[in-house]
């Protein structure tokens, strides 16, 4: 091993020990700097005899290039290390939950009402509304339910006065609509109704949606088609729907509509419907020989309970955030 090789070994050992870029720089200055030992060797070339210069020069140059390479390799290794440690410092743990904005929710009652409205709007039904404090006439008499009619037993009524009551169903909206509008008619009306009945399965006020279609030739088949389509859209295409004869004073024939969730094993009533009674049409001045149609009414809570599996009707008016957040 000659002097040059020994020098390289020495410098190499030094560089290997280096831990940061400053020390690399120190070695660079000590070797390749103005007064560095390699630079000194370079300067020495001109002092050598002509015949030795070429050989010596080449060796010094090789030496210089070797050192430069070692230094630059070490520099990049150290730079990479620095970069690595800096990026960890700057890093963000993305598993930390982001601070959230609070967004509220629409109450499930209105959520379901909106869904029902959407289904019927697409079939051409218009949204109308009516008063909650009603005249006895609109709530009962006009709907073919005179005083002392046993059907009134089914409506435990809240009274404000002898002639004013809290509507027991949304059906008075039918009368108000037909008094103000000529057929053909397609309307729906969702809103609050009241019954004086308060226990674990009954609320003193709840929500219904009413529908009415009057035209020249509307049939029971139209009633079935419209309601079956609506129920399946709302509750699922796999549901089975049946139309069971029933009685309402303001429709004739009348039906209740049941839905089966468990393949015909259990039927759950979802709405009442029927062909509008001719007496009701006469009460608003429509000729039942010219106009006919169907009406229906459904319980919004009922639909919501079936749709979401809610088993306690008292959840709806409680307005507990743990419930409200679900929808």
């Amino acid at each position: 091993m000659d002097d040059f090789e020994m020098l390289v070994e020495t410098i190499k050992t030094q560089i290997d020990k280096v831990k940061d870029l400053d020390e690399v720089e120190k070695i660079r200055v000590a070797t390749l700097g103005k007064n560095g030992n390699i630079t000194s060797l370079m300067k020495k070339i001109s002092t050598l005899p002509q015949e030795e210069r070429a050989n010596f020069g080449k060796k010094v140059n090789d030496l210089k290039m070797q050192i430069e390479k070692l230094l630059s390799e070490k520099t990049s290794v150290l730079k990479a290390e620095v970069l690595k440690s800096k990026s960890l410092e700057r890093s963000i743990d993305l598993t930390i939950p982001g601070p959230l904005r609070s967004v509220g929710k629409i109450h499930v009652i209105n959520h379901v009402i909106n869904e029902c409205v959407e289904v019927f709007s697409k079939m051409g039904f218009n949204v109308v509304e009516g008063p909650e404090i009603e005249n006895v006439y609109y709530n009962f008499e006009a709907l073919n339910t005179p005083q002392w009619h046993p059907a009134r037993d089914l409506h435990d009524t809240f009274y404000i006065s002898e002639t004013l009551l809290l509507r027991t169903h949304t059906s008075p909206v039918q009368i108000r609509t037909m008094e103000n509008q000529k057929p053909p008619i397609r309307i729906i009306s969702a809103g609050r109704v009241y019954r004086n009945d308060y226990d674990a399965t009954h609320l003193p006020s709840f929500f219904q949606m009413e529908g009415l279609a009057i035209d020249r030739n509307i049939s029971i088949a139209d009633l079935k088609g419209t309601l079956e389509n609506a129920i399946k859209t709302l509750l699922g295409k796999d549901k089975i729907v049946r139309f069971r004869p029933h009685y309402f004073p303001f429709t004739e024939p009348s039906v209740e509509v049941d839905v089966s969730f468990a393949g015909k094993k259990e039927w759950l009533e979802v709405l009442g419907a029927g062909m509008v009674h001719p007496n009701v049409l006469r009460n608003v001045g429509f000729d039942p020989e010219k106009w006919q149609g169907f009406a229906f009414g459904m319980g919004i809570e009922r639909i919501a309970m079936l749709k979401y599996g809610i088993n306690d009707i008292r959840e709806f008016p409680r307005n507990y955030l743990k419930f409200l957040r679900l929808f």
Partner: peptide, 29 residues
Amino acid sequence: QDVDLIEEFARIHGFDNVSAVMSMPFIQG
């Protein structure tokens, strides 16, 4: 009234035996 008789026919004939169609004239909402 006549509709009462229609109900008698319909309920004995069976509402299940009436087709479900949507043939009403469409009215733009």
